[in-house]
Nucleic acid binder design. Structure first.
Lengths: 234, 234
DNA sequence: CCAAAAGTGTTTCCATTACACCCATGA
DNA sequence: TCATGGGTGTAATGGAAACACTTTTGG
């Protein structure tokens, strides 16, 4: 039995909790990874799970998602989008909980690959995702699908890569989202035709002996482009 | 003060209500309409609003949406899809309520145009939507956008039209979704190339003196098509 | 007989795809 | 010098868009 002292103007008998869960994709070493946590509470304590938390009474759901992302990765102001709300009655066996999911794409620097381990978290390759609690497996599946769809209408790579990046890097990002190889000539043609990249004179030689030119992203042109609506099918 | 007697295993202090709101589009007389209700409770009693209800403790959110749709229109088993969840802290000035929205497309028969008036509801033309309570206007805007996107990847018309319909009828449905005129030759070509329509020998003469052939929709071929993934850009 | 909507084909254009070789360089 | 990944152009294909006239028939 529990006392609740807030106003209940609508006078409902509703007793449902609401949580957010975040599906966080990270791009590193030319691979797409997923961030998972070892759950710290019963039921299913110790199992792999998405990052989640209950919404606070004075916090919007968007802010709840941002906060949990920040607390667990240190990342702010990144591409974070609502995915779907999961509301089956028995999805959480302990108690009725409705979960609003968000997904996010971020670049993962080398040190972040390790640093999350402190939180009992781990970056998994997409093809090595372990069994997840409740309906979290379904959430991940839906998020991947959504990500692919999204990629068709927005050049998502730009929220994801470091300030300077090479075309082959961008290509391998798209390849890991789509899970297939792309033709480098066609990819380059398409990307450059959007006219949202600025070429620099510098080269990144970490990927090859010849080195690849570094580009950066022209924010103004990019804004114009998405406001007009892009078609970005690759 | 209120006593809640359900288990609170997670021991949160959360006090947030959760509701569904439905954005119901109806197609009739070659126009797309939106179903709105006069709100019956304070605050904003008497204002126009979407159809909504609080989720019951033992009801999934999908079922909650289906139920409210059935109760207010008598329609079952129709295209009903989750749109987005709205969770700003102050979106409902009375109490913290998070709303999961669903949208739906249905054909509206003549008698239904009138019959909803009993419930203090009304079908509005899309360009005559009145001011709505809270963030419902935003919900409608988002739903229209989603509807257009959806129409590009699924032949949505089939959940919407009566069993027998003419090609010009189908075309005007798409025209009202996209809010622009389509070329009748190209439209017909595209629709028929999908090979999901069965032509009948009957004609509907309500739209013209010549009359247009009635088609019905081949359910088997349709299922095959969406399972393979359709591109339906018009 | 005529107004009003239904029905029909062809051409143009553009975007996507497929495809193969040279370049630069560190080891 | 050679292995490795970076960088480039062109031809073929297919789908979308543009476009105008004939047919039917109730009034």
């Amino acid at each position: 039995m529990k006392l609740i002292d807030n106003a209940n103007i609508y006078n409902t008998q509703q007793n449902i909790l609401i949580a957010v869960d975040c599906i966080i994709f990270g791009f590193t070493s030319n691979k797409l990874k997923l961030l998972l946590f070892k759950r710290k509470v019963e039921p299913a304590k110790g199992s792999w799970s998405l990052i989640g938390a209950f919404i606070k009474n004075n916090q919007s759901i968007d802010d709840g998602a941002k906060q949990i992302l920040f607390e667990t990765t240190g990342l702010k102001d990144i591409y974070l989008e609502q995915l779907k709300t999961y509301g089956e009655v028995l999805r959480d066996p302990a108690q009725r909980v409705i979960s609003v999911t968000y997904y996010s794409l971020t670049s993962v620097h080398e040190f972040e690959l390790e640093s999350v381990e402190k939180y009992d978290a781990h970056w998994f390759d997409l093809d090595e995702i372990p069994d997840l609690i409740f309906d979290h497996g379904k959430m991940v599946k839906d998020a991947i699908e959504q990500l692919r769809n999204k990629a068709k209408h927005q050049p998502i790579g730009f929220n994801l890569l470091p300030e300077f990046f090479t075309i082959p890097e961008l290509q391998s990002l798209y390849e890991s989202i789509y899970q297939r190889k792309l033709d480098s000539r066609n990819f380059r043609k398409k990307i450059l035709s959007l006219d949202i990249l600025n070429k620099t004179e510098k080269k990144d030689k970490s990927g090859s002996k010849k080195g690849a030119f570094l580009y950066c992203f022209n924010k103004d042109k990019f804004e114009t482009l998405i406001s007009k609506g892009v078609n970005f099918e690759i």
